[in-house]
Design a protein around this nucleic acid. Structure first.
Lengths: 204, 204
DNA sequence: TGTTGTGAATCTCTTCACAGCT
DNA sequence: AGCTGTGAAGAGATTCACAACA
């Protein structure tokens, strides 16, 4: 099995590779990629090794080939559909942020329980009442849920998403979610992140 | 020196402790806190040990005392002031999100280079043109910058913040920042986070 | 010469396990 | 009896260092 951290770095590498391709580069050495990503050359080589790709000692890694390998490794061939729950300030901003960012990963619907928001199309994404989660997640074969709700409803909304069949949740609410082991949860805790900056900015 | 991860968990613990205090609890055992935080009891004890607090074998940790110890450890006594650069969708949402969330950590100003946004007060936060960064960061003794700008301007905006004297940056733009070693940078990469969910949702 | 791929060494973080305490 | 505090062991991740290669 491949580690969490390696997956994160691969995701990073492929964006850096896309930048290099825009600049008409063809090859890249591990030390160059490492420098761009803020890591070490050995780390890059390990990560590339993990997906079974290999480069040439003289030229480095072929950019197009490596990009394709990472894509094949990270993306579902048929793409992944996500829904977002909680169309408040943060939910709307994140919907806008992800729209059109990755071809194989799209937000296909949003949910809210405020009738002022439901029934409308916000940033190209239709907003439904939360009661429709089960139906829409089922109909569209949605695999990922994004939670941008207040923390007191994070668990119940997660339960609805899990019940509806998602296999992963990206949770922006500052709460640990209780989910069955088949469901993967990634946490983005902005408050903790800011507190870390505050702390280490002062203590370094 | 205390580790990055421990700081993150301490930030989490103190919110959990606040919840327990609301429920009129007085003490907590390491295994209870661990269960709430999604970790192990040994981990909690190590983290508490790191800040030099200690509990009682019979009652566990005194909630008020532990909360105070964590506060003293994490927070600057005089509080920390932050500014946010980039008042787009995400910047506005994050300004709203942080407003009033932590007493000792507040966003005191925002910046943008779009004249439609500058000069206005958004979510209780005045928005200035980016040219004013140096002056305002200096005048208000701002220590933390939050970057919610498009990636192509993330580095120049980081440079301005560093130049102005911040000691930490919370960067939402998907780019590695080049900063002097005295400046701490924390990255929140939402695209990578979502790609991890997509990957591990499928591969577990 | 300068790179990749990788076993081995190292470093870091987590968990075990138990003495000591109440 | 059941907890905390912590030395020691263990698990994981990173880096070293070098053979193999062009």
């Amino acid at each position: 099995m491949i580690s969490d951290k390696t997956i994160g770095r691969l995701s990073q590498y492929r964006r850096l590779i896309a930048d290099l391709l825009v600049d008409d580069e063809r090859f890249v050495f591990s030390h160059k990629l490492a420098e761009m990503a803020g890591g070490t050359a050995a780390q890059v080589r390990r990560d590339v090794m993990a997906i079974g790709y290999s480069g040439s000692p003289t030229k480095g890694y072929d950019l197009a080939g490596l990009a394709e390998s990472i894509d094949n490794f990270l993306d579902a061939p048929e793409g992944t559909r996500a829904v977002l729950v909680g169309m408040g300030n943060l939910g709307r901003a994140i919907t806008a942020y992800f729209t059109g960012r990755r071809p194989k990963l799209s937000i296909v619907a949003a949910f809210d329980n405020d009738s002022y928001r439901t029934g409308r199309v916000i940033h190209g994404c239709r907003c439904y009442p939360v009661e429709d989660i089960a139906k829409i997640v089922g109909d569209l074969d949605v695999r990922v849920g994004i939670l941008t709700v207040p923390q007191r409803v994070a668990q119940p909304m997660a339960d609805m998403l899990v019940q509806a069949g998602v296999s992963g949740i990206l949770n922006f609410a500052p709460t640990r979610l209780r989910v069955p082991p088949r469901v993967y949860v990634e946490y983005i805790d902005m408050t903790t992140a800011l507190e870390k900056v505050s702390y280490f900015g002062r203590n370094m």
